[in-house]
Design a protein around this nucleic acid. Sequence first.
DNA 1: CGATATCTTGAGGAATCTCAATACTAGTGG
DNA 2: CCACTAGTATTGAGATTCCTCAAGATATCG
Lengths: 252, 252
Amino acid sequence: MTVASKNSPPLASAVRVPGKLPHIPAMCGACSIRDLAVCAVLDDQELTRLASIAVTVTFADKQFILQEGDAAEALFNVTGGTVKLYKLMPDGRRMITGFLFPGDFLGLAHNDTYAYSAEASGAVRMCRFPRRRFESLLEEFPKLERRLLTDASNELAQAQDQMLLLGRKTAKEKIASFLIQLAERQHRRGGPENIVRLPMGRADIADYLGLTTETVSRTITQLKTAGAIRLQQGNIIQLTDGTDLTDIAEGS
Amino acid sequence: MTVASKNSPPLASAVRVPGKLPHIPAMCGACSIRDLAVCAVLDDQELTRLASIAVTVTFADKQFILQEGDAAEALFNVTGGTVKLYKLMPDGRRMITGFLFPGDFLGLAHNDTYAYSAEASGAVRMCRFPRRRFESLLEEFPKLERRLLTDASNELAQAQDQMLLLGRKTAKEKIASFLIQLAERQHRRGGPENIVRLPMGRADIADYLGLTTETVSRTITQLKTAGAIRLQQGNIIQLTDGTDLTDIAEGS
DNA sequence: CGATATCTTGAGGAATCTCAATACTAGTGG
DNA sequence: CCACTAGTATTGAGATTCCTCAAGATATCG
């Protein structure tokens, strides 16, 4: 086997790890998150074209999907599991810039390299599109490009919310905001209202909110004691009804 | 005059304030930042079309350009001066999410409302495009849409850098990163290397970096004492040659 | 059921914030 | 041209939030 890549586990290692998720055909007809993803804007025929360049790939927990600085050779659509995006500093400090859930898109790169790393948080399944071919599809389907622009605008707005959170909110406000954000995203995907499943550990939450694990833990305890949330088995949190958490998140 | 807007000084107040900037025709042929802006991707004929829907507007220092929650009725291109984007919390805490300089684009909105406020930081001149008409031009000129997508990707990458800064960097690293970022942007616009003009006050810098004015002030003093920068007349900072600041910014 | 990782809790320390005073700067009017 | 004023920046001292280090509790997985 030729070993050429200077980075750690590259995309080659991404192919068909025996995951825990049920295998579905590359064709998107039966894709459960089809209407959440960019694919939603395409009709069946167009979708077939898109499917023809797609490969289903799976990743095991903690596997690298792509790394900051890698040549941006592919784009992805999350179809199952949770992905975390992060940046590292030379001394190891880590910042998680986002979590991706089924339906989310990954891989927009302005240069020809990725600006961040992506890692599977638990078993993950994705659709993988070679960049070149995806881009020529973009030219064919303006709808698709339009959709990407809309998505990017959305992400920008989210990013600005996150900057407000990181720069101006207290630990308590950060945790409250985070829980609400997760709850909304899961609700939008058909989950129950006011119940949040945390598919990541305290350390990941800390690195996403600019805190330490200890502070995350303490603050969650604090919210529990205050009655704003209730902890359940299996990293599940129940948000107390009413606007409690929302008020906390906004600092009122 | 009918008074209908529920928000403070809306776009109506944006028209032709007697600014200090020289007036230029709405036609872009002579625009000094034409090749920095989105306009760069259009040929003369296409540019004429774009120009035909553009209006030149100017804003005085501290004037509102748009406000979070306002209906997103226009898009802008900065042609002169500095614009700050920010979000507010109910209790008045403010986070500046970005500064815009000539050539920068403003107004992408995924909903039909702006996700942030924008305010002139000193005299500002902009090209203003009505949203509807701009969007139909987008459909006509895929190049333009492509360019917006590229720009948005760029901004996303920047936003992620900023999240790393806000969540994981120390005050010293934040200031160093900020100065480098500004220096690069100004250099790219033809300014001198290693000399930064700060077109904003300490309070704005603080709200951009998630600090207080006092800490910004102290930290700048500290960098000056350490010999990494030199302060000059008129809010101008000279970056000491060598990688000094870069090292500090990365925490090494 | 043991081993390992993760989470929680505690105590002390450090960075940054808050409040307050002083110094500087730029614009204004005499 | 200079003193005056209002805004802005700097500096200081003490308070506070969050971090660090360390131990114990809980959960997870083979």
